[in-house]
């Protein structure tokens, strides 16, 4: 019997070490029945793309609280593209000012979730994207 599971990579690019949010989301996604690969903090864009490729994930969730998202996100997207992972759904969480959201969406980030987002909202978003 086929037994397909949604696989999600949760990663923190850049240098900030605030991983509480990433861990909460990872836990919530596990409880939603997903297989969550957690890479931990201080990941380079290439490390994230490599892990996404090896783990053959459907979704990459990035958490950035340093304010460096406009520099880091394009690099992660580039690395994913270079790895042939352009089809993967990229989500972003953390402290993202409203004025950056449209630009990030344009770059290819599918969903952006700020502080206070109910974890169920993220699950609902993934379900809709995967459907």
């Amino acid at each position: 019997m086929p037994d397909r599971k949604i696989r999600v990579l949760v990663a923190k690019p850049g240098l900030d070490g605030h991983d509480r949010g990433a861990k909460v989301v990872a836990r919530a996604l596990r409880d939603a029945g997903y297989e969550v690969i957690y890479t931990g903090i201080r990941q380079t864009p290439d490390m994230i793309a490599e892990a996404a490729l090896q783990e053959d994930v459907d979704v990459v969730g990035l958490s950035i609280l340093s304010g460096a998202h406009m520099a880091l996100v394009p690099k992660v997207l580039e690395s994913l593209q270079a790895a042939g992972m352009e089809d993967v759904i990229v989500l972003l969480g953390g402290i993202i000012p409203d004025e950056d959201i449209a630009k990030l969406n344009e770059m290819g980030v599918k969903g952006i979730f700020g502080p206070g987002t109910a974890t169920q909202e993220i699950v609902g978003f993934i379900e809709a994207e995967m459907a």
Binding site: R27, T44, M47, E50
Partner: peptide, 16 residues
Amino acid sequence: SGGALLGDRVRMRDLA
């Protein structure tokens, strides 16, 4: 839940 949290990569970052 049928889900899983796979965290072993955290300790394998040297291999990236």
